[in-house]
Design a protein around this nucleic acid. Structure first.
Lengths: 227, 227
DNA sequence: TCAAAAGTGTTCTGGATACACCCATGT
DNA sequence: ACATGGGTGTATCCAGAACACTTTTGA
């Protein structure tokens, strides 16, 4: 069929998770304009004619919230005819994971406010964003079970317990410490350092850092890691 | 950001697999118009303003090839700026599985020819369709390992060996007959009939049919079935 | 009687899970 | 001394993988 007058707008939306101090957060913006003015929504916006989809999400995210992120993975494309009151809008959603403390979030352009919401305190959101968020959570949780993502979320040197907390927070359930250490150690992506870290009472923790080479190699090979 | 003049076209593409007599095929059309005139490509086309994405794929597929299908699952959205010589075109791809013998395929609209290609004899294809096809194959194979799809592809009554052949064809590798029967039987989705089927020499095969209720219930629960 | 396809159980192994006590430090 | 968090090993269980012979028919 030849080109018809197509009047469909294309947007991207970002489900950005943040991890800090054992808690997982979701980034939302408060909309400055109609529709859904003054309501919370995912950061996102129109794709420009000359930018790739990934560039579009990264740009919108940066513009609206100040968050810069390189790991963004495509989630799903939502395109129901009535999902946006402005007309036909198809949205390609992405998700990613960052450290909130690395960014000074600040609302701009379409957003009049930005905020990190703890995963269990997510407010009502606009459009069909609730569904998008839900698929983001499901995907994130299933992903970390077989791919060691999320290592970027820790300090350069970190105690093992930080990694454990990260995983249990992302999964939303406790992990067995001994089994977890066993599995991670088998991956051989951690270098044990001589440093230790002491925070208050308790035995000081051995510090580790990532062996990035091995880590990225594993990622390429598509590790099967089954938490 | 308010609505800018966005000039992006939206298309859908279908990666349709066919299964017949122990072989897996892929449906391609031969393009009637530029670009890539006279070359093979995935069936697909522009989304209309007032139809959902799934409707659009189903419609295009029907129009161009004559194939009707209800199970189509979203695969991925391809949107690189230079993927289509006509300009910016973002394509949402879907994949599905049908029985070729159920359809009289016939080219129309954009297609001047349609054909089922055996999976190992896929010709060069237009655009970035090779990548799309590849993701379709990967997805199909990983999917049937944990979800009992593909049952629609057999006759109402069928010998167990048909199911086995189907799976080994889809996976592209042989499956162990005893282990396979064991696992499928545990799912409890097959009703054993009194009929048998005899085709040439060899012991006649017991016929089975699906217990659809149980089958759809399992599907809902998200069976973990691990072939 | 032979060729062809259907049917059927057991063993082995490896990974996942469950589980509890000692160690080093700060107060 | 005690409270706090760090660190470690073993036993069990289950699911997946491997594997070969008997049965029933057509020719």
């Amino acid at each position: 069929m030849h080109v018809l007058k197509q009047n469909i707008k294309l947007t991207v939306d970002a489900v950005v998770f943040g991890y800090e101090n054992g808690k997982v957060y979701l980034l939302l913006i408060n909309r400055k304009y109609e529709p859904f003015k003054n309501q919370w929504a995912l950061p996102g916006g129109y794709v420009k004619d000359d930018e790739n989809l990934e560039e579009a999400v990264a740009r919108e995210l940066k513009e609206e919230s100040g968050v810069e992120i390189n790991f963004l993975e495509q989630l799903y494309t939502f395109g129901a005819v009535d999902r946006d009151p402005r007309g036909r809008v198809v949205s390609i959603s992405y998700y990613g994971l960052v450290r909130p403390d690395k960014f000074q979030i600040s609302a701009a352009t379409d957003a009049k406010d930005v905020k990190w919401f703890p995963l269990n305190e997510i407010p009502q959101v606009s459009f069909d964003h609730e569904r998008i968020i839900e698929s983001g959570i499901i995907r994130l949780r299933s992903k970390i079970k077989y791919e060691p993502i999320g290592f970027e979320l820790l300090d350069a040197k970190f105690p093992f317990s930080d990694l454990e907390k990260l995983y249990s927070a992302l999964l939303g359930e406790p992990v067995d410490r001994r089994n977890f250490r066993k599995k991670i150690k088998e991956l051989n992506v951690l270098d044990e350092l001589d440093d230790t870290l002491s925070t208050g009472p308790g035995r000081p923790a051995r510090l580790f850092k990532f062996n990035k080479k091995r880590f990225f190699q594993l990622k390429k090979e598509g590790v099967h890691f089954e938490l």
